[in-house]
């Protein structure tokens, strides 16, 4: 299972960044740099909804809502509580 951050980390590492999960910097911009592209985003939203129980609307899938792993973790945790 792991914490929300660990699970997001593992997901992003395997599906978008192809690198060891522990090496993703928390403050690395992901959306504004295109590292996580728009096609990845729909899949990420589905993962978050089915695995973490939090819905992120398609209109929120932009860097104004979250851009880094740290911001995404906060967003998901806020909505979980």
């Amino acid at each position: 299972m792991g914490t929300t951050e660990e699970r997001l980390r593992a997901y992003l590492a395997a599906n978008c960044l192809h690198m060891p999960p522990d090496e993703i910097p928390l403050d690395q911009p992901l959306l504004s740099t295109g590292l996580v592209d728009s096609f990845h985003l729909v899949e990420l939203a589905i993962f978050i909804e089915t695995e973490l129980g939090v819905r992120i609307d398609d209109t929120e899938l932009n860097s104004g809502t979250f851009d880094t792993l740290a911001q995404l973790t906060v967003l998901v945790e806020q909505r979980q509580s």
Binding site: L17, H18, M19, P25, Q28, T33, G34, L35, D37, F39, H40
Partner: peptide, 16 residues
């Protein structure tokens, strides 16, 4: 370096 390469491609082209 891997991240920097990915970023260079994403920000410089239409693909990931």
């Amino acid at each position: 370096l891997g991240l920097a390469i990915r970023e260079a491609v994403a920000t410089g082209s239409e693909v990931t």
